[in-house]
Amino acid sequence: MSFLIRQTLIYAIPLMIVALAGVFAERSGIINLALEGIMIFGAFIGVLFVRLVQQWGWFEAAYKAKDILGLQSFVFLAMLAAGVLGALFSMLLAFAAINLKADQTIGGTALNLLAPALVLFLIRLIANQNTLQMAKGDSASWFMLKESMFGYGVGRGVNKTPSMGFLGQVFVNKVFPITYVCILIFVVLAIILYKTKFGLRLRSCGENPQAADSLGINVMRMRYIGVGISGALAGMGGFVYAMTTANCSSDGTVAGFGFLALAVMIFGNWKPLNIAGAALLFGMFKCIAASYTSLDINGDGVYLLKNLGINTNLYRLLPYLITLVVLAFTSKSSRAPKAEGVPYDKGAR
């Protein structure tokens, strides 16, 4: 059970934060189809940051001393770098969509093509292979929290200290703390979007930019900010994905997570709370598909899902199928921001 919850969170959190990235762009009126590309780019930047810093030997001492705080601030800095560069990368979309009034779907597609091409080109030059990895060690030994760090489950035989309880197993053991940073960011940004003046202004640009403009809001600036936040979140989400599910490596793909996040966003009806729920649901199915054969839900030693004898492939396609079915039932009440995808033209009425 603790395994299921932990693993679900690992899949769900990148989805959640990237879906929120989509919300920020679309609420400001720009369709961000480039989430996948920005994630790929962010993953690359984060991994490159970790690799370079390792090569410079900056956090070597922290690693040797098992200094949790030092190592976590290292990984946090890497995520920050991914976010900043992700925001910068998304400016390509912002410039095309806002200044040049380009087709946003095509602009997003261009970024989705550009990111893997650029990333793979650079990876091949840097590492002389198609995957960029950490300079030394793996993500688990450097950045993962383990119960032994807190004195639980240490030693052998009768001297072994007790393991952590259920909550500890779920939320501390074998967990990457940056996922909690992501949850924090998610909550803070959701509040900003809904409870502050700035959030209201941003959303008004996605609903009725003409009216917003007439009230003195700088629509273009707001849209730049929306896309920028979106790029930063997607870049961070890409790095978190690379860290937690790809052993801190980058190979020019995030397995369609960016597109899934887009689906989660629509599934969640452009609302943060619904998105969190949708992401958890998605993450749970992903987790079940990946590990149902060894999944012991209620801890009685019976692998219930394995014993059902359902084909793996069915579990794998279920999240996609369920999304389609749910969309089919909720499409009537689904409500996209009114002005999304429409370039803002001051002269238009």
Binding site: A96, L100, A102, D103, I106, L113, L114, A117, F121, R124
Partner: peptide
Amino acid sequence: YNEYITDVIIAVIVYLAAFSLL
């Protein structure tokens, strides 16, 4: 060099196609 440079070229072309109207 490697083959990904041609993918970059394609991506740039698509990016420009986004504002081909312009």
